[in-house]
Structures are given as C-alpha cells and as structure tokens.
C-alpha cells in the first residue's frame, strides 16, 4: 500500500514537472526543446547523484549533513593532486575521489554505529570538520583552470552517444542505485532497517552495519561529485558547494523519501532533483528573480512534507503505529 502510494507520488511529481515545462513553453517554446531539457538534466546531474546517496542514508532513519563538505574536501584534494601530478590518469583520480569520499563517510558511519551518536549530530560536526580540513590542505588558496590539466577539465564535458559524459555519470549512478535497491540483500536491509529496526535485528540483519554502509555510500558519491564539481566549474576552493547539503535533502524530500526512514525510491529521488532543476532553469527564463527561486523550492519542500505525512498516515494502521511508539 505504502509502495503503491509512493509510485503514485512519482507519477504526480512527473506530471508536475511536465506541467511546469508546458507552462513555461507557452511563452518560451524553446524551453521545452529536447536540447534544452537535456541541458537541464546535465546541469543537475551532480544533484541527482548526491540525492541518491542521501536517500540511502535517510532510508535507515539517518541523515548526512556532511555531503557538501565532503564534496568540497575531496574536490580540493583531487584538484591539488592533478595540479601537482598532471600525468596521473583521470579514471584513477576518479577512483581516488570515491575512495577518499567513502573514507570520510565511513568516519561518520563508525561514529553512528559504534558510539551510537545521533546522525544529525555526527554529520553536523563533520560538516565543519571537513570544511576545516579543506582549508588546512589548501591553505585557503584556490585551484583554478590554469593549474588543472586539460584532460581533468574536458573529460566530463565530452560527448558520448549523443549525451554529455556528465549526464552519463548520472545515468550510471541511477542504474547502479536501482539495482542495489531492488536486487541485493543490502537494498532490502536498508528498507527493513528503516521501517522496523527491531524486527530487522530479529531477522538477522545487522542494523548498525547497514547504517555504516549507507554512510560509506553517501560518502563515496560525495567524493565522485567532488571531482565532477571542481572539473565542471573549474575551480576548487574552500567555499565550493557551501550550503548545498540542503538542496540534496530537499531533492529527497520532494521526491517522497520519508525523513522517518524506510520509504523512498530511486525514481522519487531523481524526480525530486529534476523538479528543483526545472524550477531553477525556468525562473530566469520567465524573468523571476533568483531570490524567488529559493522561496519556491522552500514551498515545494513544505508541500512535499505535508503530502508525505498524509500519505504515510493513510498507509499504516493506527494500532500498529501506537505499538511502535511505546
């Protein structure tokens, strides 16, 4: 029942996105052209990748506020490595970025798993720590275009089968996450842990370890996004993606991922990110100030939370909810 509601919400969200595009296209037909929509998708590829990582964490009743800071740190380290050793092949750098990101995520995970500290506290702390580390390794200096190698900058700008390579990164992430969520015991453990941790323990699922791995995954995609971000915007600084964690969480919430855990789908998280993307792209076109953009995405979040809360209430039986609470 909850599942079918979620699926329904994905349809509603897709319809809302289509409506928004149609509405803008009445005045500015160029907005709805495939080339433009493709560039919106490409612009928000990094957000999609990050939202998928965040979704995995939120499913386990946790939250990762440190993703953007992790991104900034990893991006800085990768850019500095490239500046110092331009001959290191880019695929190796990407693997390195994912490894560094996963290590930072594992640090969050260990604190949550072994010390039992609430995830919001852990990641609020590491958010600051990772930003501070970025400053320490760089000494506050920027790494900009002239210090990055040509391959470093051009890889994700290249085209492959009619799409930018950056978009292919997002598509690969979507497929990988979809398979993980629906076809592996770990994906199942994520849902079970979020819906009913007690029952999961009895069923032989290690709830703490599942949370730990979720944080490793969110860290790993943050690391990947770190490389993509600095190479796309051709700058690595301590201020990169400052405050972006809120966009990531917003994409999940709008996409129907329940903050209470256990409910959420890959499709939902992707559509949530795209919804923010279409709003972000449409408002300048129809000449609305970017400040409105923030207010509108904020309203969308609140609306999504209200819809989620009502959907969940209808889905569960009240007797069971009460038993859970005691």
């Amino acid at each position: 029942m909850i599942r079918s509601l979620a699926r329904q919400r994905e349809i509603w969200l897709a319809a809302a996105i289509a409506l928004l595009i149609g509405f803008v296209a009445i005045r500015f037909p160029a907005f709805a052209r495939p080339a433009n929509l493709m560039s919106v998708f490409n612009d928000y590829s990094i957000l999609i990748i990050l939202a998928l990582g965040q979704m995995v964490v939120i499913l386990t009743r946790s939250i990762d506020l440190s993703m953007a800071a992790n991104l900034a740190f990893t991006g800085m380290v990768v850019a500095m490595t490239n500046a110092a050793f331009p001959t290191i092949p880019i695929p190796l750098l990407i693997v390195m970025a994912m490894a560094i990101g996963a290590t930072l995520g594992a640090f969050n995970g260990v604190l949550v798993w072994k010390l039992g500290i609430p995830p919001i506290v852990v990641t609020l702390g590491t958010l600051t720590v990772f930003r501070g580390m970025t400053f320490v390794v760089s000494g506050g200096a920027w790494v900009n275009a002239d210090r990055m190698s040509a391959a470093f900058i051009s890889l994700q700008r290249g085209w492959f089968l009619g799409l930018p390579v950056l978009s292919w990164f997002a598509i690969a992430a979507i497929i990988a996450f979809y398979l993980m969520m629906t076809r592996t015991p770990f994906g199942r453990a994520l849902y079970a842990t979020g819906v009913n941790p007690t029952a999961s323990v009895y069923a032989g699922i290690d709830v703490g370890r599942t949370k730990f791995l979720a944080f490793c995954i969110s860290g790993m995609v943050s690391g990947l996004a770190g490389y993509l971000w600095v190479s796309r915007y051709v700058i690595a600084s301590t201020e990169v993606a400052n405050g972006y964690e809120l966009q990531i969480i917003a994409a999940c919430v709008i996409g129907g991922v329940s903050i209470a855990g256990g409910i959420g789908t890959v499709g939902g998280a992707v559509l949530g990110a795209l919804f923010l993307g279409v709003i972000g792209a449409a408002l300048p076109v129809i000449n609305v100030s970017p400040f409105w953009q923030l207010a509108i995405s904020g309203s969308a979040i609140i609306l999504a939370v209200i819809l989620n809360a009502r959907g969940e209430k209808r889905g569960g039986r009240i007797i069971l909810k009460k038993a859970e609470a005691t």
Partner: peptide, 17 residues
C-alpha cells in the same frame, strides 16, 4: 507489531527477510 512484521514491505519480502 514491533518485533515481527516489517509493515510497509510486501508479504513476500517479509517472508524472505
């Protein structure tokens, strides 16, 4: 309710958990 079924997952996924 608390320790047995995982409400929100379908029957077959509960059985296989």
């Amino acid at each position: 309710a608390r320790q047995g079924v995982v409400a929100g997952l379908p029957i077959f996924q509960n059985v296989s958990l």
